[in-house]
Structures are given as structure tokens and as C-alpha cells.
Amino acid sequence: MTQLEVLRYNPETDQEPRFQRYEVPFRDDWVVLDALNHVKEALDPTLSYRWSCHMAVCGSCGMMVNGEPKLACKAFLRDYPGVIRVEPLRHFPIERDLVTVIDDFVAKLARVKPWLMPKEPAPAAGEYQQTPAQLKRYKQFSMCINCMLCYAACPEYGLIPEYLGPAAIALGHRWNRDSRDGGREARQQELAAKEGVWDCTFVGACSEVCPEHVDPAAAIQQVKIESTVDWYQAHLMPWLKK
């Protein structure tokens, strides 16, 4: 058996959250999500949390496991000796138990226009052509599953709620680096703003906690450099502007 300490919050009755302990069977192949499912099915059906795929693809089950942002489906019980403390993702308001209010992230994601804005009209026949080298330029940033672990790890986002944040910037950068895309100028308004990349002080925690090995910290610093080059070109070499 192993002990699970889960942060509970019922918006209808509670003034503030409280921890509740559950004893769950210990199995070598169980992840924290299995333990939560066991609690829900066998011990306490009132426990609320988000999950869907159970295979680190959907990005729904992000939560704090012993203080670290983790996907509950990727956090094995065997890696946590002692009581396992499970809390909702940090920096997001708690809706109920382990469910957070993610409206802020969803709105920010839309602001960076994370979709293809074609540079040229689509080919009349067949698909866009892209070389492996062109694919490699953006591939790792396209692996983001919007799980928001990076937002929970980022102290800047905690201190400055207006900050656009790691995943949104990485996804904007992902499209900027795509050979088919011509939407960089439209995204710069958000990415190059103070609340965009310039609120980042390069803590680097986002890249450390990413379950898909995306490197949002790298994306942010690259946008900083590109935006700086833009500024110098506009102010020192205005004749270069089309």
C-alpha cells in the first residue's frame, strides 16, 4: 500500500483547499493517475481531476506531484518513496480538487496565432513540399501537447500573470520557423512585446519539466535575438525595410 495526499477543494462549501489522505495499493506498473482512478472508483467518487489518454499524448492530467509539475500518467508510484502529495497545477486558479481554470492559457495560445498563415498560395495539386532540413527547424517545438507543466514551473508566470508564457511562445516560434509560413509579422505584436518574450528572465524551468522534451526556453531566447535584430534593422538600417 502507498499513501496519497490529495489537495481537495469544493467551491460550494470550502473557503480554502485542504489535504485528504487516501491509502491505495502499490503496484510497480502504476502511475499516479492509476492511483487517482482507484480512489475515484473504490474510495471516494467525489474526487475531481482531468485525464483522457493515459499515454502522455493528450496533455490533460498535468498536476503537481511532490511539488513538481508532472503528467499524472507519466509519474510512476515506484519513483516516489513515502507519501505522495498531489496538487493542482501551480499558478492556475483551482476550479475543484485537481481541476484548474485554464482560460488564461487558452486565450494566450490563440493570441500567438498558432496556425499556418501561408506565405504563398497553396500548391494547385498535391501537398506542400518540405525538405527534412526545413522540417527539423521547427519539429521539436511542434511536439508541445499544451499540458501547461511549463506554466506551473515558471516563476515569472506566477509573479507576472500577464506574461505570455513558455508554451504559447514556443508554438508561435514553431510557426515562424516553418518554411510554408509567412505570418511572423502578425505574431511579433504578441511575441516581441514586454508581456511576450521580454518578461522571461531565462530561469529555464519550462524546458526541464516538459514531458515531450520541447525546449521552450530556447524558443524564447531565439525570439529575443530575432526581435533585437529587427529593432536594430528598423532603427539603424531603415533602408533595409521593404
Binding site: Y9, P11, E12, D14, E16, P17, R90, H91, P93, I94, E95, R96, V101, P155, G158, L159
Partner: peptide, 13 residues
């Protein structure tokens, strides 16, 4: 009536 709980930010991080 739903009222999301906002956890305070301290220097604990």
C-alpha cells in the same frame, strides 16, 4: 455558484 480558489504566490518557490 463556483468560485475558483487562487493560491497566494510567496517566495517559497
Amino acid at each position: 455558484m463556483s468560485k475558483p480558489y487562487v493560491r497566494p504566490i510567496t517566495s517559497e518557490w
